[in-house]
Amino acid sequence: MSAAQSPDWLARMQRQAAAARDPRLRRFYEAWQLPGSTPLRDVPLAALDLETTGMDPRRHSIVSIGIVPFDLGRIRFSQRRHWIVRPRFPLQALSVTLHHITHSDLAAAPDLGEVLGDVLDALAGRLPVVHYYPIERAFLDSALRFRLDEGIEFPVIDTMQLEARWYRQSLGARLRHWLGRRPVSIRLHESRLRYGLPAYQPHHAALDALATAELLQAQVAARFSPDTPVEALWC
């Protein structure tokens, strides 16, 4: 988790820009300008949340995408973007209640392919911030491979992984585990409460993105400094 182990995302994104075939993807990669040494205070961020029909990108699909641009000083909730997209696989009853999205909403929604340009433009030049990165990365990659026959990769800050550093991998957390105590929850809601953040109604992509952005601001205020290089956080 130190800067030394951190991938050189600037170089990787530049290689991807050269290799990308889809113009929307190429635009996305080319917009990336941030070396890993950039202090956090200067990093444009974008909280990203996907709502999906399940956890497995091979069987489940994206139903909504929320993006909230922000930086360490201010979360631009007023500039948030939110898309509902039609899933590839049929919606199961359980997820319906989870997302407050109904079948008729989805029937009228566009395919992700139609809004992909908008989604990527909203992220362009910004470092995505997510809570539990495997979902966002894997689902976007899978969705793009299905539609464009090429995937996507990008750096993220994962607020859950940051919590795990302190509450799962730290010496104290291991001691706790060794003593047989229940581990501290690092889910979004519980993590937020540790920083005095209010309880939000979960499972709306834009609101979860806002909740994630707030959590990162809180984590940086508590554990890092605005001068911390971004490579200390991303993965």
């Binding site: 000083g73 201010r74 979360i75 909730f77 007023s78 707030e214 601001q217 809180a218 205020a221 508590a222």
Partner: peptide, 28 residues
């Protein structure tokens, strides 16, 4: 139309003479 910001206990939210462009509402 709201934007959002988080401030850790003890930190300055507004300093004297800085410019201000929004009304602040305490959510928590």
């Amino acid at each position: 139309s709201v934007d959002v910001a988080y401030f850790k206990a003890g930190s300055e939210i507004l300093e004297r003479e800085q410019t201000i462009d929004a009304l602040y509402y305490i959510r928590s």
